[in-house]
């Protein structure tokens, strides 16, 4: 959508004249003025967020008309949501894949062997925690962290293919990796929960 003021570029604020654009459904990459790519330059990402915040934040509209204040709040909420999602690598990967290929919930098959393995690891963790075996809990967490990092490496490679050629096949593979990562994340959260409870 073009800017009302100067018919410049898109996003939450016009890149040409800085005017706030009407709040509407835009994806989170567009909200930050980024292409739909997995690779993000961290410094540039933060700078973009700060620049947009300076234009859109409600603090800039304290004395403005109520409608403009509401728009500023809405636009900043959209911006903050986009920032939160895209700043974190796994969240960004999941968002990109979901955006291009649909939700992971309920329609991504998971291998029975994988589920079985995770279930066993969970039982082991619960037993260690119940027995107060902090060393064992820590060791299990450490092992899972290694596994998670390896999975993230695979995911990065898959998404690099997408970034290079917009190849949907790369995203289909990434879906499987993302689901696995969900299980790893929940497992690590449980570890952290036990460790915090013990501390």
């Amino acid at each position: 959508m073009a800017c009302e003021q100067c018919s410049g570029a898109t996003g939450l604020a016009c890149e040409g004249c800085g005017a706030m654009l009407p709040a509407r459904a835009i994806d989170r990459f567009a909200a930050l003025g980024l292409p739909r790519r997995f690779a993000v330059d961290a410094a540039e990402f933060e700078t973009k967020f700060r620049e947009l915040s300076k234009r859109l934040h409600p603090d800039r509209f304290v004395r403005a008309a109520p409608a403009d204040r509401a728009r500023a709040a809405q636009a900043t909420a959209t911006l903050n949501e986009a920032y939160r999602t895209l700043r974190d690598e796994s969240a960004r990967a999941e968002y990109l894949v979901t955006l291009e290929t649909g939700s992971l919930d309920g329609n991504q098959p998971v291998a029975a062997a994988f589920l079985h393995e995770i279930l066993e690891l969970r039982e082991e963790l619960d037993e260690a925690a119940a027995a107060g075996d902090h060393a064992r809990v820590a060791a299990l967490g450490q092992a899972m962290t290694v596994r998670r990092d390896a999975s993230l490496g695979v995911l990065r490679a898959q998404l690099a293919v997408w970034d290079g050629a917009s190849d949907p096949a790369a995203l289909a593979e990434a879906r499987g990796e993302l689901v696995a990562l969900r299980y790893y994340r929940r497992y690590l959260e449980a570890c952290a929960g036990y460790e915090e409870g013990a501390a």
């Binding site: 409600p58 709040a73 809405q74 900043t76 909420a77 959209t78 903050n80 949501e81 920032y83 939160r84």
Partner: peptide, 8 residues
């Protein structure tokens, strides 16, 4: 720790 304003 989500930035404000924010929505869901």
């Amino acid at each position: 720790n989500s930035g404000v304003p924010c929505g869901a």
